[in-house]
């Protein structure tokens, strides 16, 4: 074996081991410390679960408010992003002219490259401007966070939708055309349903990105102690922010345990989402025998 082959073999195995041990070490450490913290008490503290879920009693030392905050953030963001994201993806895949595809594709790429902290800064500045000129009592809140998150995850949804439709075999389009279907009928009744599970996978992927992002929400309204979110204009707690906050500001070993439990919970949720997304995307591939 010459030097180059030897070096490459060495590099590859070293990389393999570093990745396995690096990530494996971090994850196993997290599980070792956090698995015992995942129980009902982590969520609801000393409040009975039933009362906590229906907001009959406040939860003082559990992460239920953060869970509720993340859920409402997720719901709101997906509501904002779903229609523009999917229709933009469909338009790019089916209708756009060469020049539009170039231009809009470029915009999507640049938008995807904007760091999330800059998007958070955008939200913060938006509020400052609003406060100075229009609404003196505007403040960072749940709605603002959802809006900025929606802009942040928009490219993910567009790209996933577009590539699911573009991955469909071209015979499908040709057959529809040969049968005399109009372009809009083809898209609505044939292409979108055919790419359905891929688009669903894209939606789940987008949910994952929304859930894990921390940099945006910490500038646009997430706080450490807000209780349950009370409305669009209120401050809120969220799981990733809770983790970030605990790592810097924990005061007791109980809080630290709670941090480990929360981190592990977020990790599991993210993994469930990505596995679901992969399964749906795989189903699309199998259905149309795309490799």
């Amino acid at each position: 074996m010459k030097f180059r082959e030897l070096a490459l073999t060495f590099l590859s195995w070293a990389a393999f081991l570093i990745v396995i041990f690096g990530v494996g070490g971090l994850i196993i450490f997290l599980m070792y410390r956090g698995i015992s913290a995942i129980n009902l008490k982590l969520f609801f503290g000393d409040t009975p679960a039933f009362d906590a879920i229906f907001a009959l009693k406040p939860v003082w030392n559990g992460i239920w408010p953060a869970v509720a905050g993340t859920l409402s953030l997720l719901l709101l963001t997906m509501t904002i992003v779903l229609i523009p994201g999917i229709s933009c993806g469909v338009y790019l895949a089916c209708f756009a002219s060469e020049r539009e595809r170039d231009f809009i594709g470029e915009s999507v790429d640049i938008l995807a490259g904007i760091p999330s902290i800059v998007m958070g800064l955008f939200g913060l500045e938006l509020v400052i401007i609003l406060r100075r000129f229009f609404l003196p009592d505007a403040t960072t809140c749940l709605f603002l966070s959802s809006l900025c998150l929606a802009i942040l995850v928009l490219p993910t949804l567009i790209t996933a939708t577009r590539s699911s439709i573009e991955a469909l075999p071209s015979q499908l389009k040709l057959t529809a055309e040969a049968l005399g279907m109009s372009k809009s009928d083809t898209v609505r009744h044939l292409l979108i349903p055919s790419a359905g599970s891929g688009i669903l996978g894209g939606i789940i992927l987008t949910m994952g990105r929304t859930m894990e992002d921390t940099a945006v929400i910490m500038l646009t309204g997430a706080v450490a102690n807000a209780g349950l979110p009370r409305g669009l204009g209120s401050k809120f707690e969220a799981l990733p922010f809770k983790i970030y906050y605990t790592s810097a500001q924990y005061t007791s070993s109980d809080e630290l345990m709670q941090g480990f439990g929360t981190a592990l919970l977020l990790l599991f949720l993210s993994w469930i989402l990505i596995l679901a997304a992969k399964i749906f995307q795989k189903r699309l591939m199998l259905k149309w025998q795309i490799n």
């Binding site: 990530v23 894990e212 921390t214 990733p240 981190a263 989402l273």
Partner: peptide, 20 residues
């Protein structure tokens, strides 16, 4: 493993690293 890694939230990496 790489696929699972794409889904690990950055904040979880950070949290685990702070304490390990």
């Amino acid at each position: 493993i790489l696929t699972l890694m794409t889904a690990i939230p950055t904040v979880v990496y950070g949290f685990a690293a702070v304490f390990l």
